[in-house]
Amino acid sequence: MPLEAFQVLSAALFCIGLYGVLARRSAVLILMSIELMLNAVNINLIAAAAHMDQTAFTGQIIAIFVITVAAAEVGLALAIILRIFRNRSTVNVDEVDLMKW
Protein backbone atom coordinates (compact mmCIF):
# COMPACT_ATOMS: atom_id res chain seq x y z
CA MET A 1 0.00 0.00 0.00
CA PRO A 2 1.27 3.54 -0.72
CA LEU A 3 2.22 5.81 2.15
CA GLU A 4 -0.48 8.30 1.17
CA ALA A 5 -3.27 5.79 1.86
CA PHE A 6 -2.14 5.36 5.45
CA GLN A 7 -1.67 9.11 5.88
CA VAL A 8 -5.15 9.95 4.59
CA LEU A 9 -6.63 7.28 6.85
CA SER A 10 -4.70 8.64 9.82
CA ALA A 11 -5.87 12.18 9.02
CA ALA A 12 -9.49 10.96 8.89
CA LEU A 13 -9.24 9.24 12.28
CA PHE A 14 -7.51 12.30 13.78
CA CYS A 15 -10.22 14.67 12.55
CA ILE A 16 -13.01 12.41 13.82
CA GLY A 17 -11.31 12.44 17.21
CA LEU A 18 -10.90 16.22 17.06
CA TYR A 19 -14.63 16.60 16.35
CA GLY A 20 -15.37 14.42 19.37
CA VAL A 21 -13.12 16.54 21.60
CA LEU A 22 -14.67 19.81 20.41
CA ALA A 23 -18.33 18.90 20.16
CA ARG A 24 -19.22 16.53 23.02
CA ARG A 25 -20.21 17.31 26.58
CA SER A 26 -19.23 14.16 28.39
CA ALA A 27 -15.70 14.13 29.82
CA VAL A 28 -15.44 10.35 29.30
CA LEU A 29 -16.29 10.74 25.62
CA ILE A 30 -13.72 13.50 25.23
CA LEU A 31 -11.15 11.09 26.69
CA MET A 32 -12.19 8.40 24.19
CA SER A 33 -11.80 10.91 21.34
CA ILE A 34 -8.29 11.78 22.55
CA GLU A 35 -7.47 8.05 22.38
CA LEU A 36 -8.70 8.05 18.76
CA MET A 37 -6.38 10.96 17.95
CA LEU A 38 -3.39 9.24 19.57
CA ASN A 39 -4.09 6.08 17.56
CA ALA A 40 -4.18 8.13 14.36
CA VAL A 41 -0.79 9.60 15.23
CA ASN A 42 0.60 6.10 15.85
CA ILE A 43 -0.61 4.90 12.43
CA ASN A 44 1.11 7.88 10.82
CA LEU A 45 4.39 7.30 12.68
CA ILE A 46 4.57 3.60 11.89
CA ALA A 47 3.54 4.11 8.25
CA ALA A 48 6.37 6.63 7.82
CA ALA A 49 8.80 4.26 9.55
CA ALA A 50 7.77 1.32 7.36
CA HIS A 51 7.86 3.25 4.09
CA MET A 52 10.96 5.38 4.54
CA ASP A 53 13.55 3.14 6.21
CA GLN A 54 12.57 -0.41 7.04
CA THR A 55 15.77 -1.19 8.93
CA ALA A 56 15.42 1.71 11.41
CA PHE A 57 13.00 1.42 14.31
CA THR A 58 12.80 5.08 15.32
CA GLY A 59 9.16 5.46 14.30
CA GLN A 60 8.16 2.37 16.25
CA ILE A 61 10.11 3.58 19.33
CA ILE A 62 8.26 6.91 19.27
CA ALA A 63 4.97 5.04 18.88
CA ILE A 64 5.86 3.02 22.00
CA PHE A 65 6.37 6.28 23.92
CA VAL A 66 3.04 7.60 22.62
CA ILE A 67 1.33 4.44 23.90
CA THR A 68 3.07 4.82 27.28
CA VAL A 69 1.97 8.43 27.65
CA ALA A 70 -1.56 7.49 26.56
CA ALA A 71 -1.77 4.82 29.26
CA ALA A 72 -0.56 7.23 31.96
CA GLU A 73 -2.92 9.93 30.70
CA VAL A 74 -5.97 7.65 30.73
CA GLY A 75 -5.26 6.50 34.28
CA LEU A 76 -4.89 10.03 35.59
CA ALA A 77 -7.77 11.50 33.59
CA LEU A 78 -10.18 8.83 34.80
CA ALA A 79 -9.08 9.48 38.40
CA ILE A 80 -9.79 13.19 37.86
CA ILE A 81 -13.18 12.42 36.27
CA LEU A 82 -14.16 10.17 39.19
CA ARG A 83 -13.11 12.88 41.67
CA ILE A 84 -15.13 15.53 39.79
CA PHE A 85 -18.14 13.23 39.67
CA ARG A 86 -17.87 12.58 43.41
CA ASN A 87 -17.65 16.29 44.25
CA ARG A 88 -20.11 17.79 41.75
CA SER A 89 -22.11 14.70 40.60
CA THR A 90 -21.66 15.62 36.94
CA VAL A 91 -19.02 15.01 34.28
CA ASN A 92 -20.45 17.52 31.84
CA VAL A 93 -17.50 19.71 30.88
CA ASP A 94 -19.82 22.70 30.30
CA GLU A 95 -20.82 22.64 33.97
CA VAL A 96 -17.33 22.14 35.37
CA ASP A 97 -16.37 25.82 35.04
CA LEU A 98 -14.51 26.39 38.30
CA MET A 99 -11.38 27.67 36.53
CA LYS A 100 -13.19 29.66 33.81
CA TRP A 101 -13.53 33.41 33.98
Binding site: R25, L29, L31, E35, N39, I67, A71, V74, L82, V91
Partner: peptide, 27 residues
Protein backbone atom coordinates in the same frame (compact mmCIF):
# COMPACT_ATOMS: atom_id res chain seq x y z
CA UNK B 1 -2.68 -1.92 26.34
CA UNK B 2 -5.42 -0.27 24.28
CA UNK B 3 -7.96 -3.04 23.68
CA UNK B 4 -7.20 -4.56 27.07
CA UNK B 5 -6.31 -2.03 29.74
CA UNK B 6 -7.54 1.31 28.40
CA UNK B 7 -10.89 -0.04 27.15
CA UNK B 8 -11.53 -1.68 30.55
CA UNK B 9 -10.66 1.58 32.35
CA UNK B 10 -13.03 3.60 30.13
CA UNK B 11 -15.88 1.13 30.63
CA UNK B 12 -15.21 1.30 34.38
CA UNK B 13 -15.47 5.08 34.28
CA UNK B 14 -18.75 4.91 32.34
CA UNK B 15 -20.19 2.54 34.92
CA UNK B 16 -18.96 4.53 37.96
CA UNK B 17 -20.33 7.83 36.66
CA UNK B 18 -23.90 8.14 35.45
CA UNK B 19 -22.91 8.55 31.80
CA UNK B 20 -25.18 5.81 30.46
CA UNK B 21 -28.46 7.46 31.43
CA UNK B 22 -27.46 10.93 30.25
CA UNK B 23 -26.24 9.82 26.85
CA UNK B 24 -23.79 11.46 24.50
CA UNK B 25 -25.02 15.01 24.01
CA UNK B 26 -23.44 17.68 21.80
CA UNK B 27 -22.44 21.00 23.34
Amino acid sequence: IYAGAIAILIIFAIMLTREVQQGNLPN
